[in-house]
Computed example of a mutant assay.
Amino acid sequence: MKILVRFDDICPTMDFAQFKRATDLLDKYEVKPLIGVIPDCKDPDLDIEKPHEDFWEFVKGLQAKGYTIAMHGYQHVFNSDHKGIVTNRIGSEFAGHPLNVQIEKIKKGKDILEFHGIYTDIFFAPAHSYDENTIKALAENGFNYMSDGKSNAPYMWFGVKLMPDRNSGCPRIRHSNLYTAVFHAHEWVRPDKEYGYRELQSLLSQHSANIVVWNDFAQVSCGNFTLQRINERCYCFYEQKLKPVLVKIKRELEKFSIWK
């Protein structure tokens, strides 16, 4: 079993106090996560603090400590009304845009990172929302990996290796071979999201022996492209279409004490 810990929405205006809570826990258990840096964040929801002038040195310090840096979108602005391949949420920074637009966005983001001395070949999209053109644009810009997808094994697409990320948050650890636990530290101040910190605590205390760095996670062998794409579509259908109906039926049955 391999577990990857991932933090999203790293940017100069994020909630640094909440992120420090995360890094303190990670340091305690000597866990080195994958962190997604937004190159040019324009998302008003992430305009939490005044921009930290030392942000890029801060990121390079985390990298020197063993954290792996990924590019997390470009500006984190949802300017398309498409859902993407694996999500049911309308709104995307990438999905639905023409190939040339996506190539340009990814190029601009990569140029910003490299201007600040940060080099990476790993990408993941805001809200897990991407389409076929996103993968092509990543390949065009020299990216080799994407931390997104709902298959049960990695697969190659246009020369980019898609690493499974079946959960939008912290998964229940059962019997699967690969897990990606996704955290958004800035959300922990919200009453409806404060459980995220406790989930991180629990994951680290119970499963730190199975948590690996990105390089180990990314070395997992690829599955067959066609089979993994079918697997991904079946998983998405179940999670987005079938499961909500089953949950609703179960709740209705519980009202009449039929479901035990």
Rank of each mutant, 00 (worst) to 15 (best):
N141D: 01
E57N: 07
P39K: 07
K50I: 07
G149P: 03
E194R: 14
A218W: 05
Y119E: 10
F94N: 03
S168D: 06
H97K: 14
N88D: 12
Y179V: 09
G84Y: 09
C41F: 10
E104L: 05
Q240T: 06
L200H: 02
R190H: 08
M14T: 12
I85H: 10
D43A: 13
D111V: 10
L4T: 00
S208T: 10
S221L: 09
F78H: 14
E252T: 04
D8L: 14
E140Q: 06
V247T: 14
F115M: 04
T13P: 09
Q228H: 00
A181Q: 07
Y179D: 02
R190T: 01
P44L: 11
E30W: 08
D81H: 13
M163N: 01
F256K: 12
P171G: 03
E252C: 02
L204R: 15
I135N: 01
G61R: 12
E239F: 02
A137R: 09
M146V: 04
L46S: 05
T87V: 13
I122D: 00
F143W: 10
R89K: 13
Q18L: 09
K193N: 03
F55S: 05
H128C: 06
K260D: 01
H76N: 07
L246W: 03
I106P: 05
Q75N: 11
E194H: 15
S129W: 08
V182C: 11
D9T: 07
A181P: 10
N215D: 14
H128F: 06
A218R: 15
P191N: 04
G159K: 10
L113C: 06
D165Y: 01
M14H: 04
L46W: 05
F143Y: 12
P98S: 05
E254G: 14
Y119S: 05
E57R: 15
I3A: 00
Y29V: 09
C170R: 08
G196H: 11
E93P: 09
G196M: 15
W56T: 12
V37F: 14
N133M: 12
K161P: 04
K83Y: 08
R166T: 00
K241I: 14
N215V: 09
T120P: 07
Q75I: 15
K243C: 00
D121T: 14
F58P: 00
K83F: 04
G142I: 13
Y155D: 02
H52I: 02
T226G: 01
H97N: 09
S176E: 13
W188L: 15
D54V: 13
A209R: 10
N133E: 06
V160Y: 08
E114M: 11
H76P: 11
R89G: 00
A153R: 15
E194C: 11
F115P: 00
F19I: 06
S257N: 12
Q240D: 05
S168F: 07
H76F: 13
S202I: 08
D8W: 08
L246C: 11
E93I: 12
F55Y: 14
K20E: 13
I106D: 03
N141S: 03
E114Q: 15
L203S: 01
N177H: 11
K110C: 01
F115D: 03
K28N: 02
Q201W: 09
E114G: 06
P98N: 01
M156E: 06
Q219F: 02
F94P: 04
F217H: 08
D9K: 15
S208A: 12
N88K: 15
A218E: 04
Y29W: 15
T13F: 03
V37R: 11
D45Y: 08
S257M: 08
